[in-house]
Design a protein around this nucleic acid. Structure first.
Length: 433
DNA sequence: TCTGGGGTCCTAGGACCC
DNA sequence: TCTGGGGTCCTAGGACCC
């Protein structure tokens, strides 16, 4: 075993440059050279081409603001099917050089190239160069790449020069890069921790890396001790190999405009979210044993409830049944609501033979047949061809449908919001802020 | 950084048990 | 009604990521 004397790894991080906008341009080359922005369906920019960035367009900027800055901008709705396709092609190109790929997100992946010099008959650097070249030319967009000794430092590399950068950071040069990187820019160090560290006199990543491990242990929790290790060149975070198909939780959240006091409308919004969450659940052959729902007021306060289901389920009716009466206990008359959401937790795979599933094979079979039909109709005619009566009111509101139309009706429903940094917490029974 | 949406992991502290 | 300590499991909430 090699666990005792560790050898340097060769970890690659690949990051698509303004990925969504680049996919749109790759798909439609007539857009090349233009200011392209995606996120039309939300009313705010989610990705923009460098031409748009050069004109001052930033993430989460309102479309009206963008048009003012840049009247000839092309604004497109997000097209996740296309982005996923390009994403898969990205993984496959990297996979030519190693089977050890982590499909980290739609526009990023990690690859462990360690030990592949002999089979590939080239150095790690040559592999990085070839991978980048193949990605750029075959996909028609640019990628930024980092090559280093672990995931955290490979990420520093891919961020070092953008767009279209390739940065190699050997272990013995790490300090040169860390010295020029603010601690808050390190993967896994967020605003809380970086301002805390700043107060302790830690400004750069090198300041942090050179602290004693005992000091770090004393001041911070485990994830940060691990980051500290990686910044010192150790390999701590393994790559998560293979396709992502199991989930710890599945959630669906939607903000609707305008906010409403109408109980049946709010409930139908929730119903729609539950339906969509269940579609995803079934797509992955999963069943949920726990569900949390919440409604969010105009003042961003949450009312939530959580229930454990006696049986694992994957159809919305059962969840709705369980939720319906309880909904009344959290819904406050006269309060304006702006969003609803559902989180399905405690998920189990359908081929896991558990007692409660076993007893329900008959039902599951029946429901499965119905929903197979529903899901296939939805696939053919659009996601919302068939929906529950309880979702009806929500279906009449086109605000967030991903259609490419641009009716005035759509326009008036476009979200006025900006981006949120805060993750939605799900407080247990009652309110927080 | 004033409010999208979808995830993951960790930890402190309470409940409960011996 | 005071006094000890240790272990495990669970949950709410925090922090972070894309």
């Amino acid at each position: 075993m090699l666990t005792h004397h560790s050898f340097p790894r060769a970890i690659l991080h690949v990051d698509g440059d303004c990925f969504f906008a680049s996919c749109e341009i790759a798909k439609n080359p007539a857009l090349r050279g233009r200011a392209v922005v995606t996120g039309k369906e939300r009313g705010i920019a989610s990705s923009m081409s460098y031409e748009a960035k050069a004109r001052g367009v930033t993430r989460a900027m309102k479309l009206s603001e963008i048009k003012r800055l840049c009247p000839d901008v092309i604004i497109l709705p997000s097209d996740y099917e296309t982005y996923s396709l390009y994403s898969k092609r990205m993984y496959e190109i990297v996979r030519r050089y190693t089977p050890d790929i982590e499909e980290y997100s739609i526009d990023e992946c990690f690859a462990d190239l360690t030990g592949m010099r002999r089979p590939n008959k080239m150095s790690y650097e040559q592999m990085a160069i070839k991978i980048k070249h193949e990605l750029d030319t075959e996909l028609g967009m640019t990628f930024s790449i980092g090559l280093s000794v672990n995931k955290v430092t490979a990420k520093i590399g891919s961020k070092w020069r953008k767009p279209s950068g390739l940065t190699i950071i050997p272990g013995h040069d790490l300090h040169l890069y860390l010295n020029r990187t603010l601690i808050g820019k390190i993967w896994g160090i967020g605003p809380q921790t970086s301002s805390y560290l700043n107060k302790l006199g830690v400004i750069t990543a090198l300041d942090f890396a050179t602290k004693d491990p005992d000091w770090v242990k004393d001041k911070l929790s485990k994830p940060f001790q691990e980051i500290h290790q990686e910044l010192n060149g150790r390999f701590v975070y393994p790559l998560v190999l293979g396709e992502k198909n199991d989930y710890a939780s599945i959630s669906k959240t939607r903000t609707f405009t305008p906010p409403s006091k109408d109980k049946s409308l709010v409930f139908s919004q929730l119903s729609k979210n539950i339906e969509n969450a269940c579609i995803k659940l079934r797509r992955h052959n999963l069943f949920a044993k726990e569900v949390a729902i919440f409604i969010k007021t105009q003042e961003f306060r949450y009312q939530a409830l959580e229930l454990k289901l006696s049986q694992a389920i994957s159809i919305p009716q059962e969840i709705l049944e369980a939720v319906r009466e309880k909904f009344d206990s959290i819904f406050k008359v006269g309060t304006l609501y702006r969003a609803t959401g559902v989180v399905l937790m405690n998920l189990i795979h359908s081929d896991t033979r558990t007692i409660d599933l076993f007893n329900r094979y008959e039902l599951i079979d029946k429901v499965k047949k119905i929903y197979e039909a529903v899901d296939s109709l939805s696939a053919r005619y659009g996601k919302h061809t068939i929906f529950l009566g309880s979702s009806f009111k929500a279906m009449n509101e086109p605000a967030h449908k991903n259609d490419r139309g641009d009716s005035s009706e759509r326009r008036k429903n476009i979200l006025k919001g900006e981006s949120a940094r805060k993750r939605l917490g799900i407080p247990y029974l009652g309110e927080t802020h």
